[in-house]
């Protein structure tokens, strides 16, 4: 009877895990399914830190279960030493081993903080593409200064080309996130932050804001398209045919509250628009760009 009970309690978790597995096969596990070099390295880092942590987690679980079975008061045969409360060796072990693990992880942290710094340009034979990003209430504006076009809620980039996003906000703080291409970065009014990313496979990837910015926040999603060089040129050419223009007047028309905005294109974007947007918030006496804390 007892054996059946134990079997039953083992089967339930297995069943749940199996159902979970079937479910996860149907969805896109964005963070673990990277399509660009940056996201790939970030994923590896997560898995590495997780593995290292298991060196502490597993002993804790094993000891917890073993001790609670062995030293249960019902087991009167077990050794009982009520005054055993200090052991230099044991305590050195659990000050020591976690310290060693943390030292290893600290080295990795320090190195990866530098190698995966979102401000760091990505090495590549291809020249870097600059795109300016503005979070607005409640949509994303992408300005392509080299081509002088712009789009709303559509980020299209050529494959294997390093991209440098310059990000600011004309609204409350937001946070840009395209899980399959790169991690998150804040967008703030009067500040410019940077995110360097690269797409190594073509496809359409979900992008969003991950920091609450008001009632239209949930609708601040967009598609990031990684396309071939040819398709990128085609995309630019088709955007150039759009009747919309983004001069200051066009920008003011765009800069009203709107939610769940479909992808929109602008055949012209004024090259000084981005500067105008963040300068709105800067003190006139303080002309240089503030690029964030500590920089």
């Amino acid at each position: 009877m007892k054996k059946i009970k134990i079997l039953f309690f083992c089967l339930i978790p297995l069943l749940i895990i199996y159902i979970g597995y079937l479910y996860l096969k149907t969805v896109n596990i964005a963070v673990l399914n990277p399509k660009g070099e940056i996201a790939l390295k970030e994923k590896n880092l997560i898995l590495f830190a997780l593995t290292l942590s298991l060196f502490v987690l597993v002993p804790v679980f094993v000891m917890l279960i073993a001790f609670s079975i062995k030293y249960n008061e019902k087991n009167t045969k077990a050794k009982y030493s009520p005054n055993f409360d200090h052991s230099r060796i044991f305590e050195s072990i659990w000050w020591g081993i976690p310290t060693i693990l943390i030292i290893i992880l600290s080295i990795v942290t320090w190195q990866s903080s530098h190698s995966l710094d979102p401000y760091k340009a990505i090495n590549s034979p291809k020249p870097t593409l600059n795109i300016q990003v503005v979070s607005m209430d409640w949509k994303w504006l992408f300005i392509y200064p080299d081509s002088e076009i712009a789009s709303v809620n559509d980020l299209t980039i050529p494959i294997n080309t390093p991209v440098n996003l310059e990000i600011t906000s004309d609204a409350p703080m937001n946070q840009l996130w395209i899980p399959q291409l790169a991690g998150q970065i804040m967008s703030m009014p009067g500040m410019v932050t940077h995110l360097n990313l690269i797409g190594n496979e073509t496809g359409t990837f979900r992008g969003m804001s991950s920091n609450i910015s008001g009632q239209g926040f949930s609708g601040m999603t967009f598609n990031a398209h990684v396309v071939s060089d040819v398709n990128y040129q085609n995309w630019i050419n088709s955007a150039r045919k759009s009747p919309n223009v983004l001069n200051k007047k066009g920008y003011q028309a765009l800069n009203v509250d709107s939610e769940y905005v479909p992808a929109t294109y602008y055949s012209y974007a004024s090259p000084d628009l981005f500067g105008y947007i963040y300068n709105k918030y800067m003190s006139p006496s303080n002309g240089n760009i503030n690029t964030g804390m500590g920089n």
């Binding site: 963070v31 996201a39 390295k41 970030e42 994923k43 880092l45 997560i46 830190a49 997780l50 942590s53 298991l54 502490v56 987690l57 804790v60 679980f61 917890l64 992880l105 990795v108 942290t109 990866s112 903080s113 995966l116 979102p118 946070q175 996130w177 899980p179 790169a182 991690g183 998150q184 970065i185 991950s210 920091n211």
Partner: peptide, 26 residues
């Protein structure tokens, strides 16, 4: 002990800045 340790491990992941870029605010 069980749940806090798991949460603690998640915390260690979040403490690595580039890993946090993918997990922060999620």
């Amino acid at each position: 002990i069980i749940l806090f340790s798991i949460g603690g491990i998640a915390g260690v992941l979040l403490a690595v800045p580039p890993a946090d870029f993918q997990l922060n605010n999620s």
